Simulated assay, not measured.
Amino acid sequence: MTNQLDSFFSALADPTRRAVVEQLIQGPAAVSALHDGHDMALPTFLRHLKVLEDSGLVTSTKKGRVRTVEMQPEALRAGADWFEAHKSMWEGRMDRLARLADHLERTRT
């Protein structure tokens, strides 16, 4: 699970890759359409797509000369689960801290 999380967060650490993910949330898109909004050479952009594909966040298929990239929503689950687990932990800690502060305030007065 750790390697999957590392790959997930590493893939999303780059603003270009996050922008691609945002575009793909709307639905599958051709590589050329995804590349249009980015000011970089196509080979550089393709390396970003490879990172996303290696992480499992996207898949691509080729039909004729057109390569289409598609989001893999289930891959987001690993990140969502990690955030949810940490959110629960921190909410619990914050609740205990609030109770302690309340208790200390009441005993001080």
Rank of each mutant, 00 (worst) to 15 (best):
D14R: 08
L24E: 12
S7I: 00
M40L: 14
F9G: 05
P28A: 15
L5S: 06
L5V: 07
R17T: 04
L42K: 14
P43I: 10
Q23A: 14
S10E: 04
H35C: 02
S7Y: 05
A33S: 14
G27D: 04
Q4M: 02
D6P: 00
A13F: 02
V31C: 03
D6W: 10
P15A: 14
N3M: 07
E22D: 15
P43G: 12
T16W: 00
F8V: 02
H38N: 06
E22N: 08
F9K: 12
N3Y: 09
A19Q: 12
Q4I: 07
D39P: 00
Q23C: 03
Q23G: 01
L34M: 11
R17P: 00
E22W: 02
V31I: 15
D6E: 08
L34R: 11
D6G: 13
L42G: 01
V21W: 03
S32Y: 08
L34C: 06
H38T: 06
V31N: 04
D39H: 10
L24P: 00
A30W: 02
T44W: 01
P15Y: 08
P15K: 09
L5Y: 09
L42W: 08
A30R: 14
L24N: 10
L34K: 11
D39R: 13
A41C: 02
T2Y: 02
L24S: 07
A29M: 15
F8L: 12
F8T: 10
L12G: 03
D39G: 06
A33G: 01
R18K: 09
P28G: 06
F45R: 12
Q23Y: 03
A41H: 10
A33C: 03
D6L: 13
A29E: 12
F45G: 09
H38F: 15
